[in-house]
């Protein structure tokens, strides 16, 4: 039998694993920083990280809104709008985020629409992840039992009202974990914006590396910053899931 570890372990194995990763990350960070130019690089890298967070947060917002609109249109809008939504999802899922970014930043100006690098970055990544998010939402909405729609219908609730008051609150809980995945994907994809002149974390790292050639330290710190950010997202989504789950009080009604 394994010895019972002492110390603050999480209530579940997943929380325990998370804590372990966090502790390891922290220890690794100490190690790297004690070696070296943590003082030299960290301020600059944190400035880059701020840009990264900005793009990720803005992109997440765009992604959620785009996914919500596309999903609603695909499920309930009249035909032309539905086609438009389908086209959006397929186009942005079916081409690479990098190409989309270049389109928004380099091609659109030729058509007379100029976007700032930040706007282009947020829009491209948000629309890209939103296309995947739309699939997540559709799945969650369709997983709400048909009986819920029928009960609402028998009470004469309108379609939109049913969606908003009955179906979406239930679908919401089911879509939190996959959305957590998408937010992390988005966070990692933000490194692409370094290619459209934004000084994000990845850009700063390359810049510092080219001038100092202290590759191991720089990319060690960068790795840890990305990891810390994504763990933050994970923890936030866990908390959200617990809260939403409590409100829904799922149990006997499941069917």
């Amino acid at each position: 039998m394994p010895a019972n570890r002492t110390g603050p372990t999480g209530s579940s194995p997943a929380a325990g694993a998370l804590a372990a990763v966090a502790i390891l990350g922290f220890a690794g960070g100490l190690l790297v920083s004690s070696f070296a130019g943590f003082r030299d690089f960290l301020p600059e890298l944190l400035r880059g990280a701020a840009t990264t967070v900005q793009v990720a947060a803005g992109g997440s917002l765009v992604a959620v809104v785009a996914a919500l609109l596309a999903t609603t249109a695909r499920l309930y809008a009249p035909l032309p709008l539905r086609w438009l939504a389908v086209a959006y999802v397929e186009l942005f899922r079916g081409t690479s985020a990098l190409v989309q970014l270049f389109w928004l930043f380099f091609v659109l100006p030729m058509l007379g629409i100029s976007l700032s690098p930040m706007t282009a970055g947020i829009a491209a990544l948000g629309l890209n992840i939103g296309a995947y998010g739309s699939e997540v939402m559709r799945g969650a909405i369709e997983a709400v039992p048909r009986g819920q729609w029928e009960a609402a219908s028998a009470l004469n609730l309108g379609r939109f009202r049913t969606l908003r008051r009955i179906v979406l609150p239930q679908a919401f809980v089911a879509m939190i974990p996959p959305w957590g995945n998408l937010f992390i994907e988005l966070l990692k994809a933000t490194s692409l914006v370094s290619l459209i002149t934004l000084s994000d974390l990845a850009f700063k790292a390359q810049q510092l590396n080219q001038t100092t050639l202290r590759t191991v330290e720089i990319f060690g710190i960068v790795l840890l910053i990305y990891l810390a950010l994504s763990l933050l997202v994970t923890l936030a989504m866990r908390a959200l899931e617990r809260r939403a789950g409590r409100r829904l009080l799922r149990g006997k009604e499941a069917r």
Partner: peptide
């Protein structure tokens, strides 16, 4: 309905208030 189809995210009284209100 056979399987009740109550709205699981609402309390009993909210279940009975939703449609009369909206």
């Amino acid at each position: 309905f056979q399987h009740f189809n109550l709205f699981p995210h609402m309390s009993a009284v909210q279940n009975c208030m939703e449609a009369p209100m909206s």
